[in-house]
């Protein structure tokens, strides 16, 4: 299980569903679900709109162990409405983060896969996002590390993109995507000339795992293997938690301002990679994870 090379391809994180990811990420048999499907805590809104519910409202939350250490874990199901956050879905995640402050687990693991707010549920979904963020920051302020894992089919966008960036640390695979407005939203609102959401190479080099690592927005890039995510989560648990002081936040704001000054005029991610001093930036998307990490190891990764 502690295969750090990630070469042993057991279970694809990208292809697994929310429950499968939990099963293979945690110690065997250690998961205990909170408000599981038999409770039938379904969305009160979807039925009124003539849409089918899911028994778990698209999110699985509970207790478990990773390498013997107690954690709380949440896993969003991208297959159900793109992992979108409705009222019940959001309340389950908020409740889990609030529970962390009481139980003080070794970490809260968030397996994020979501297009953001479930707009069918309108304000209830929007409020849920702000409640999640408040609960997440309260858990961090109480010294509980919150670790986000991203690597599913639907990526992590919208309000959940904000939630992701509120985490202490993020782990992503090459297939994973992280952003605020997703590619389709940008194309719909700004036009295909601004962003062609059908151009998969453009999408991945703009919001994909490799670019997010180079920008310092995620801390670890791993193979698409649940065992590799598990190893990375265990490594992250050994790290000191991120500083949440005012000084640290102001330093991050300054770094983000500087980033805009440095890269704001770039038309493509490859121009940013070039400015970062990376040779042959056009080749970076083609490299496998090990070669990519080797080729880019000079870039500082622990900042911002």
């Amino acid at each position: 299980m502690s295969d750090l090379s990630g070469r042993h391809r057991g279970h694809s994180y990208y292809e697994a569903n929310a429950r499968g990811r939990i099963t293979h990420l945690l110690d065997a048999g250690s998961f205990r679900e909170i408000l599981g499907p038999t409770e039938r805590l379904t969305s009160p809104h979807l039925e009124l709109l003539g849409l089918p519910c899911a028994f778990d409202d698209g999110i699985v939350v509970g207790h478990g162990r990773i390498d013997g250490r107690q954690v709380l874990i949440a896993s969003q199901e991208g297959g159900f409405m793109g992992g979108a956050v409705g009222e019940v879905h959001g309340a389950k995640l908020t409740g889990l983060l609030e529970l962390a402050v009481q139980e003080r687990p070794a970490a809260v693991l968030l397996l994020l896969e979501s297009g953001g707010v479930r707009l069918h549920e309108a304000n209830a979904g929007l409020i849920a996002i702000s409640e999640i963020i408040r609960a997440l920051l309260a858990a961090r302020a109480a010294g509980i590390p919150v670790i986000g894992l991203i690597g599913g089919v639907y990526g992590c966008f919208g309000g959940m993109g904000i939630v992701a960036r509120c985490c202490d640390s993020l782990i992503i695979n090459e297939e994973g995507r992280l952003g605020l407005s997703g590619p389709d939203v940008i194309e719909t609102t700004m036009g295909v000339e601004e962003f062609d959401a059908a151009d998969r190479a453009l999408v991945w080099r703009t919001v994909g795992g490799k670019h997010r690592l180079l920008l310092g927005e995620v801390q670890r890039l791993v193979e698409d293997d649940i065992a590799a995510f598990r190893s990375a989560a265990l490594e992250t648990l050994e790290q000191p938690i991120q500083d949440l002081s005012l000084e640290a936040l102001e330093a991050e704001h300054q770094a983000l301002s500087a980033r805009l000054t440095d890269y704001g005029s770039c038309q493509d991610a490859t121009e940013i990679w070039s400015q970062l001093g990376l040779h042959d930036p056009l080749q970076l998307p083609l490299l496998d994870i090990q070669s990519f990490l080797k080729a880019t190891c000079k870039i500082g990764r622990e900042g911002a």
Binding site: R19, F55, F80
Partner: peptide, 16 residues
């Protein structure tokens, strides 16, 4: 006590 398979999505279903 219970089992759940599948995901509610287009052309798919969950069975408990």
């Amino acid at each position: 006590a219970s089992a759940l398979v599948g995901v509610v999505s287009s052309g798919n279903l969950e069975v408990m």
